[in-house]
């Protein structure tokens, strides 16, 4: 559905006005989000100001997981229906997902030192997140190393194998005894995060999502230009 929409409105999406709107929305969300996260929101009763790391860590993890899931769904379409537009969309989504995965790992480590007392723990949540990072790296590398058709097939297979890891990351904290805390926000039972801390969390999530869209648009345009310059109608 969404992808058909993208295909139909290709001209609107690649237009500079659309990009400008996204940039403006991103700047608004980021400024409000940072202001809320760093100044307005209260510090935590246990971890005091270290809680502010969460406003970067959690949205980054959410975004990187969602982007990988989208790439996997697109890859399924690529392998089954040989849809050429999906190839460019999936390829253009990967870099921002990769960066947010890296941010989630690094900020988690920075948070872990003052609260847990360690930079790194081989705990199921953290290890599975590292595995996702490796899959992102392999996915991006496969586009660089292999030739056109081979790269499309190999990267799509990688995305499909890697997506098995996504539910493992999500439920690792419920299935096993982990050092990482369980999810605070559950769809059915509400949030274990106080409402004054939710506003910055959602604003930061929105701004990260807009940032991903922005990077996606830039990458998508470059890929289209690359195709045009090669004078190829096929990939």
């Amino acid at each position: 559905m969404l992808f058909k929409l993208i295909e139909k409105n290709k001209n609107i999406i690649t237009s500079p006005t659309f990009k400008k709107i996204i940039i403006i929305l991103f700047i608004i969300c980021l400024t409000l989000g940072l202001f809320e996260a760093l100044i307005l929101s209260p510090s935590d009763y246990l971890q005091s100001d270290a809680v502010r790391i969460m406003y970067v860590h959690v949205p980054a993890a959410w975004i990187s997981l969602s982007i990988f899931s989208i790439i996997a769904i697109l890859s399924l379409g690529i392998l089954i229906f040989k849809n050429k537009n999906f190839v460019i969309i999936a390829k253009s989504l990967a870099p921002s997902g990769f960066i947010f995965n890296l941010i989630a790992l690094v900020t988690g480590s920075i948070w872990g030192k003052p609260t847990w007392g360690t930079w790194w723990a081989w705990d199921p949540r953290i290890t599975s997140m590292l595995v996702l990072f490796l899959f992102y790296s392999l996915y991006l590398l496969s586009w660089r190393i292999f030739d056109k058709q081979k790269a499309i097939n190999i990267s799509s297979c990688l995305a499909l194998i890697g997506v098995i890891n996504v539910p493992i990351i999500k439920y690792s904290v419920n299935w096993w005894a982990t050092l990482h805390q369980p999810s605070s926000i559950k769809i059915l039972s509400g949030s274990a995060i106080h409402s004054s801390m939710l506003t910055p969390l959602f604003l930061m999530t929105a701004s990260f999502a807009l940032f991903s869209v922005l990077i996606f648009l830039m990458k998508y345009n470059t890929e289209l230009i690359k195709l045009k310059n090669k004078g190829l109608n096929r990939l």
Binding site: S43, Y45, T115, W116, Q181, P182, S184, A192, I193, H194
Partner: peptide, 9 residues
């Protein structure tokens, strides 16, 4: 080990 609860003091 930190739990999943976050709240102001």
């Amino acid at each position: 080990k930190h739990d999943e609860n976050y709240m102001p003091p």
